[in-house]
């Protein structure tokens, strides 16, 4: 039974993650009074790209060609550490969130190098921005983890989320609210959404994530698109596990709550994108530092409570 649940968990993540971007686009369209594209647009895109060939630049090396494969496999590996609806993640050990964060850092490193491989100035700009954002976003994640681990006394992701329950919310409401806020900002940054990056933009100079994959085509592009939707899923599931913590022992109801949390965060992303414009590039570090301060504040509240 345990194994079946784990299998279900992996399959659900792999199958549903592209839906997140579909939901975001649909909600944004509703906000703008448009009909919008189908919720399943990303599935069609990935299917279409998987049946195409590819065009490679003359200046790329083997690194560029294996990068998309590496990024997707690393992202899936990272996703396996994250628990699903109160279930144990496929992989779980003390200190696994350190490992998780560094696996994602590795995939970012590969993406940056693959962008630099093309000798394109546009991609260089994107890579440079991505490297800069990481410097400010990494401490946000670790600060949030420090606070969570302090609240629950656990040092694995599963341990932390299995200790989070509705009664903890009663005691720690301000701390957890601040944490959700800073993790939400982190998600916007990691998934390259407004106000950090605008996936709708069509000018190379202003892109960040999109510009780094300008020269990827066909199955390579499909892999990268899929990987970024899984990444979004991972960060959304952090938020979901905090706002709707495991409340019962019934697997299906837990799952339902978990999925509801994930799709709710997608809706929240869409609302954010509809009501605000992206930040000036030079303001981004300040915004991330604000997120960091918020998570420090959460920690301080936590320490002074007891």
């Amino acid at each position: 039974m345990e194994n079946l649940r784990i299998l279900f968990q992996i399959l659900a993540m792999l199958a549903l993650s592209p839906l997140l971007f579909g939901i975001i686009n649909k909600v944004k369209a509703v906000f703008a009074g448009r009909q919008g594209r189908s919720v399943f647009k990303l599935y069609y895109d990935i299917y279409k790209l998987l049946n195409r060939g590819a065009v490679y630049s003359n200046s790329v090396t083997a690194l560029f060609k294996i990068a998309p494969v590496a990024i997707l496999s690393l992202t899936i590996t990272a996703a396996l550490i994250v628990p699903f609806g109160g279930q144990k993640g496929v992989i779980s050990f003390p200190g696994d969130f350190i490992f998780f964060s560094y696996i994602l850092a590795m995939s970012r490193f590969v993406l940056i190098l693959s962008a630099m491989d093309t000798a394109s100035s546009f991609e260089g700009m994107g890579a440079s921005r991505e490297a800069q954002f990481a410097v400010f976003s990494e401490p946000v994640f670790f600060m949030a983890m420090i606070t969570l681990s302090k609240i629950t006394g656990q040092i694995s992701i599963y341990g932390i989320f299995s200790r989070l329950n509705p009664s903890l919310w009663v005691v720690n409401a301000p701390v957890l609210t601040l944490l959700v806020f800073s993790l939400f900002i982190l998600m916007l940054c990691e998934a390259a959404r407004v106000p950090f990056d605008d996936p709708e933009t069509h000018l190379e100079l202003t892109m960040i994530h999109e510009v780094m994959i300008l020269d990827n085509s066909g199955p390579d592009l499909a892999y990268i698109l899929y990987a970024s939707s899984i990444k979004m899923w991972i960060f959304a599931s952090f938020i979901s596990s905090i706002i709707l913590p495991r409340h019962s022992d019934i697997f299906w109801s837990d799952c339902l709550f978990y999925l509801a949390g994930i799709f709710l965060s997608a809706v929240a992303v869409a609302v954010t994108e509809s009501v605000m414009a992206r930040l000036r590039l030079l303001r981004v570090p300040h915004f991330l530092m604000a997120a960091f301060s918020v998570s420090v504040m959460a920690f301080v509240f936590q320490s002074f409570k007891g």
Binding site: L50, N51, R52, G53, A54, V55, Y56, S57, N58, S59, I66, P68, V69, L72, S73, T118, A119, S120, F122, E204, L214, D215, G218, P219, D220, Y223
Partner: peptide
Amino acid sequence: LYIARKRIFSKALVSHSVTWDC
């Protein structure tokens, strides 16, 4: 994943060109 991509490429056209430069 690498083998999967290789199988796609065996059926599809893979070509080389310049880097995208607008």
